[in-house]
Design a protein around this nucleic acid. Sequence first.
DNA 1: GTAAACTCTGGTCTATAGAACAGAGTCAAG
DNA 2: CTTGACTCTGTTCTATAGACCAGAGTTTAC
Lengths: 132, 132
Amino acid sequence: MAYTIGKLAKAAGVTLETIRYYQRKGLIEEPVKPLQGYRHYSEQTVQRLHFIKRAQQLGFTLKEINELLFLDSGHCDDVRQLAEQKLQQIEAQINSLTALHGALQDMVSGCGRAKADNRCSVIDALSQNGEK
Amino acid sequence: MAYTIGKLAKAAGVTLETIRYYQRKGLIEEPVKPLQGYRHYSEQTVQRLHFIKRAQQLGFTLKEINELLFLDSGHCDDVRQLAEQKLQQIEAQINSLTALHGALQDMVSGCGRAKADNRCSVIDALSQNGEK
DNA sequence: GTAAACTCTGGTCTATAGAACAGAGTCAAG
DNA sequence: CTTGACTCTGTTCTATAGACCAGAGTTTAC
């Protein structure tokens, strides 16, 4: 079954612009335009868009997704390596966010207490030595 | 003690461009340029740059930092509210990253096993139903 | 067969956080 | 007093992931 770009967009849950952008970036190939009429997209392309969206939800950038698509089948090791790398990035990200969360929470919890000098402990904590 | 922009940059550990960018964005004020010569920056500005950098490390965007600076002293409640909002964002972010981590890990751990059809389980998992 | 809906091309625009550059002016050291 | 280092202004550029728009062509529905 063939899709025009609008149908494709609807089927994949993206906008026309997204599709065109992906074409420009080489994430999906642009079908040749028939001399007369509009381009046709295949079911395959719907699947590929789903693939891209899922990978994106998993935190892959388009660039990384492009690599995945390029490696694709047959190079399982490479794909796994990419995934493992991403896994480490995510761990690091979680760690720093957790630290950040703790720091911010400390600040906020210091904030409620009445202070003689009428200053904000959050601001103070950020300033650390004397900003304003 | 007065700084020229280069000294200021060095003292604060940022580049000239960053300082000028912050000036454009109103995060630090641009000292009036003397008719003759270069601009002078105060120690205060060094502190403010440190403030900005710390806040940035804590995950605030420049826009949010600008709000913080604007609210600044006297409006502790507002500042705290902003911080609490950020706190929630961070929690949400950690949660989704954790979910992501689990999903990716499942994929990767399925990957080592030899597969009859020679396909990559990471790709398969992302494809979900039939991409390639 | 005409109007509405869709697609095409190509260009500009958004946000974020700066980086880089050109050409002119200024300051500091020898 | 000249050379090298620094600063100034203004503009353009980077990356990421698209959004939007105009004007022309095409298709579909009534």
